[in-house]
């Protein structure tokens, strides 16, 4: 109990004594979290949008000739060699003809003279609805084009390709800002703790002579890092939430945002970001403690 009281008192003292530095650190941590979480929020929303868009994505491979049923497993294997897919449907000339007839309904008489042979047989491929697959759809179709007996490959629309580029770019930004987050947090916190250690150097040395346990000396510093992490991540996420609400209000009504159905992080993700923030800052202070304190 006395131990806890001391640790808390000492931590409060450290924070108070160098409040300017502490505030700068807090600001840096908050901004890092805000920047990272902002891009991550957009990314997760794009992912969700991608999944919904993926529902009507399919690749149609037109063939020169009908495939005999015995050949199907072999072709399926070839397709799956490139990438796992959700479903493969073989459409014979006859199937295609019937489908067209159904689409034309009343006017299907026009087909009477043609017979099923004017439509090419095809394979419909439904890719897995993950973003990775959707963004690689271009390469996939190029691969399909190289298979023997394929006359033409058709898929989605131009924007799907753009969507793919955009999400790849966004993923890069998320990764970069994530890296920035890790570096700035651990670095700035370990730097701040180092300042605390340096400014309290004399005191820490005397504590050592007085028989202070290693935990007694280190815990307040560790707690300082932990608090920076907790407070910084909370503030960063809080700021993002305010920004999020502003965006929602600003762009409400029909428009781009509705396509994406903009939502905030799930509670698990919020917890994960908080946890990561605390972990990184604590790691930063631990680094300085191990480096600059002997006992």
């Amino acid at each position: 109990m006395q131990y806890l009281a001391y640790i808390l008192r000492q931590t409060a003292r450290n924070l108070r004594l160098a409040w300017g530095t502490q505030l700068m650190t807090l600001l840096t941590v908050t901004l890092s979290v805000l920047i990272f979480a902002f891009f991550f929020l957009i990314y997760t929303n794009m992912m969700k949008a991608g999944e919904r868009l993926g529902d009507d994505v399919r690749i149609i491979v037109y063939l020169d000739d009908e495939i005999v049923p015995q050949m199907r497993p072999q072709i399926e294997r070839k397709i799956r060699e490139f990438s796992e897919v959700e479903k493969i449907v073989f459409i014979s000339r006859q199937n295609a003809f019937e489908k067209l007839g159904k689409q034309l309904a009343e006017e299907k008489d026009v087909l009477n003279d043609l017979g099923p042979y004017f439509l090419p047989p095809s394979i419909e491929i439904y890719p897995l609805k993950t973003l990775k697959n959707l963004t690689h759809i271009n390469q996939f179709s190029e691969y399909l084009q190289t298979l023997p007996g394929v006359s033409k490959v058709q898929y989605g629309r131009e924007w799907l390709k753009r969507f793919g580029y955009f999400t790849s770019l966004l993923r890069l930004v998320v990764l970069l800002s994530g890296g920035l987050l890790i570096m700035s947090m651990t670095f700035i916190v370990s730097y701040t703790i180092r300042l605390t250690v340096v400014s309290r150097h004399e005191e820490l040395e005397i504590l050592r002579l007085l028989g202070a346990s290693s935990a007694y000396i280190r815990m307040p510093l560790l707690l300082e890092g932990l608090l920076q992490g907790l407070l910084g991540s909370t503030l960063g996420l809080g700021a993002l939430f305010i920004l999020y609400q502003w965006i929602c209000r600003r762009f409400s009504g029909p428009g781009l945002l509705h396509l994406f159905d903009f939502t905030f992080f799930a509670p698990e993700i919020i917890a994960a970001i908080l946890f990561a923030g605390i972990l990184l800052c604590t790691a930063g202070s631990l680094f300085s403690i191990r480096r600059f304190i002997r006992i």
Partner: peptide, 25 residues
């Protein structure tokens, strides 16, 4: 071990020749 030395120091009071006080406290 170092932890044991710390415990031992809690039972040894030392008045240093150079005092080792913290001037601002």
């Amino acid at each position: 071990k170092p932890a044991g030395i710390q415990l031992m120091r809690q039972k040894i009071g030392v008045a240093y020749q150079d005092f080792k006080l913290i001037n601002k406290l």
